[in-house]
Amino acid sequence: MQGYFNTPDTHKYSVILPTYNERKNLPVIVWLLAKTFTENQLSWEIIVVDDNSPDGTQEIAKQLANVYGEDKVVLKPRAGKLGLGTAYIHGLNFVTGDFVIIMDADFSHHPKFIPQFIRLQKAHNLDIVTGTRYRSTSKPYTPDAKPGGVHGWDFKRKLVSRGANFLADTILNPGVSDLTGSFRLYRLPVLRHIITVTVSKGYVFQMEMMVRARALGYTVGEVPITFVDRIFGDSKLGANEIVSYAKGIWVLFTTV
């Protein structure tokens, strides 16, 4: 489908980056995104939704806006830590593109996969393309996808992740191999629609988005990605997360 933007690709891609204490990571992820978009001649913008980080993330965002342009790096802060789901809703108010990319700002999601997401989206006119750590080919198949995988996970982390995905897959049958991943490309109206009906928070939020997408009849493709666990800072996964995840699956099972 043709877009209405004045680039070879005719579309504009808006990245929504929710941040909290990411002053170390933000400049690098913006640099990587800018490089990817420029090399592929795509029209782009990055909406930084910062939850009033005390470490000066916003100051860095302003410096980046000076370098790349205020139309490219758009800072839209919020008053405090209000959660991931509402960060996307907040960011969506300022999106000017027709596609939205959501990803983590800690470079566990590498922007180099975005062109593959876009190619798959175009080839099959998909509503959503999601990154997956668990597949070696894309779905639908394309020859240019390389096998996905993870770096920096110990055995326990792998087991929990595999178990969690197996549980969700068996109970909810969402048709997507990586439910807890959060590196995705959405058509703007599709993201707006799904996010308004999504109620969960935390880990379950990303999973609910996929389950809702399927229930609403949207088409979803998958591209294998390599996932390098946070280099700076800790990623959190404890007993509390596992319990709330299991509860989340139950809620989705009984409501969607």
Partner: peptide, 26 residues
Amino acid sequence: GLFTLRETPEAYQELLKEITEAKNDL
């Protein structure tokens, strides 16, 4: 699933290089 979950040290090495490059440029 556990057995087929790939390790990707090459992606990590590549990322480290890019981070250095990005920081120098910025």
